[in-house]
Amino acid sequence: MALQAIAFYVMATVTVFAALAVVLAKNPVHSVLFLITAFFSAAGLFVLLGAEFLAMLLVVVYVGAVAVLFLFVVMMLDVDFVALRQGFARYLPIGGVIAGILTIEMIVVATMVATKGAASRVSGPQASLPDVTNAETIGRVLYTDYVYFFQAAGLVLLVAMIGAIVLTLRHKPGVRRQNVSAQTARNPKSGMRMVDIQPGAGEGE
């Protein structure tokens, strides 16, 4: 138990400080690296909760794909981060007010959870059977009870793909593409042109 508590506090502290550093770091590449740190320690918290599958997803999807994508974007797009920060002082008061309201709300909700206990009134989702891992539990419902949501989410991704293609794909005119069948079908007749050159006149081209 003590070991778990130590692990929890270490990882929770790292998560909070890494998240702060994401916002406060001067260098955007450092921000992304801190983001990865935050994801990793959040994954550790999931493991402590007994949700190994979510922890793995967090590492694979967020660290493996999303954060690396961020890194590419930060490195490849020449965004002037100094200019982006210039409104900082101007937007600080309104941003502070909104952040304050959100903090109060979070505290209210958290105390409600702590005092009454979320989902204490109804028979909510039950803890999974002891001999079944949570990856297996998710696997059992994903293609059965939740197949509709799963397929519908697939359609959402399809729309995103169509959208990306519609908005960015450009067919440039005059691009010379390799056409293998035309190349192999070429014979002396189509590949050569016989020109009868008059002495002293030269060929046009």
């Binding site: 209210v108 909700v109 409600m112 959870v113 009454k116 979320a118 989902a119 009134r121 109804v122 028979s123 909510g124 989702p125």
Partner: peptide
């Protein structure tokens, strides 16, 4: 979901009618 314990509308309605409260 956290306070009613389900994402299904009828179950949420049950929780609300039992006084699920502020959350």
């Amino acid at each position: 979901y956290g306070f009613a314990g389900s994402t299904q509308f009828p179950v949420i309605a049950e929780a609300v009618s039992q006084g699920a409260g502020g959350g």
